[in-house]
Every structure is written in C-alpha cells, then in structure tokens.
Simulated assay, not measured.
Amino acid sequence: MSTTTTPATVTTADSIDLVAAAADLAQIDEQLADLKERRATVVGILEQGLKTGALEEGKKKLLGDVVLTVTAGRKTLNAGMFAEQYPSAKFPELYKDTLNTKAVTDAFAANALEQFKTKSAPSFKASAA
C-alpha cells in the first residue's frame, strides 16, 4: 500500500484520511476524559445519597424521569489480609503454585521465550501537536 503525505491530509491508496482520523481520535479522547471526570463527580454525589440514606444499595429509585439502580458493591476476598492470618506455610492446602514470571525471565534468554509470548492489540492515542 503506497502512502502520500501533504501538509493537509495523509491518504493511502485506499483513500483513508489519516489526518481526519487522528483529529477525530484526539477529540474523542478529550471528550472521554471530560466525561470520565464529570462521571466521577456525579458518582460522588450519588455516594453522598447512600451515606444520607436517600439511596439504598440493591434498590431502584425513580428520580425525575430516570430510574436509578444502585447495585450493591461486590465483596471480594482480600488475599493479602487473609494470608496474614492463614499463611501458606501453615495452610498449604489453601494455596496453589503459580508461575513466577520473574524467575522465568531471569532463567531463560529472551529469544527462548518468544514462542510463549502473546501480543495485545495496538492502541492509539492522539494529542494536540
């Protein structure tokens, strides 16, 4: 695929406008960052509603023309806290062996491990020039 570059646009043989795509990505990323910040503020307000009793975990509440569902927070085992009271030396039946990836990378040459590596999808980030 051949690529042509000009100050205004970058197009490929398939007529993809990379400049426009990069500009769109930058704008979307900026909007997402703003929305994420705004969402955190709104969630903070709703958490205050939980503290005051205006909202309850596991309940739905009609607020104007919106039904707000408050899902109870998930309880998960804090493995570190548990391990302090039930160490693996005393309770080996509660633990399993796991691969120590640092030991593996220390023991093998990088090229010997290539066959075991996977590659994640590429990511793109656009920012103002």
Rank of each mutant, 00 (worst) to 15 (best):
T3P: 02
T3Q: 09
T4V: 12
T4W: 01
T4F: 07
T5A: 12
T5N: 03
T5E: 09
T5H: 11
T5Q: 11
T6S: 12
T6G: 09
P7G: 04
P7Q: 13
P7N: 11
P7S: 11
T9K: 14
V10N: 05
V10S: 10
V10M: 08
T11I: 11
T11A: 06
T11H: 04
T12Q: 02
T12L: 09
A13I: 01
A13C: 03
A13H: 02
D14G: 11
D14H: 03
S15R: 15
I16L: 10
D17Y: 00
D17W: 02
D17R: 03
D17T: 05
L18G: 00
L18V: 08
L18I: 12
V19R: 01
V19E: 01
V19W: 01
A20D: 08
A20F: 02
A20W: 00
A20I: 02
A21C: 05
A22I: 14
A22N: 05
A23M: 03
A23H: 00
D24E: 05
D24T: 00
D24G: 08
L25C: 06
L25T: 13
L25R: 12
A26I: 02
I28H: 06
I28K: 08
Q31F: 04
Q31K: 09
L32R: 07
L32H: 11
L32G: 01
L32C: 04
A33E: 11
A33G: 05
A33N: 08
A33M: 02
D34S: 15
D34N: 10
L35K: 15
L35I: 14
K36E: 14
K36M: 02
K36H: 06
K36D: 14
E37I: 12
E37A: 11
E37F: 13
E37N: 06
E37Q: 12
R39N: 14
R39W: 06
R39P: 01
R39D: 13
A40R: 12
A40I: 07
A40Q: 15
A40P: 07
T41Y: 14
T41A: 15
V42H: 04
V42T: 10
V42F: 15
G44I: 00
G44W: 10
G44K: 13
G44N: 09
I45H: 00
I45T: 10
L46F: 15
L46H: 08
L46S: 07
E47W: 05
E47C: 01
E47T: 01
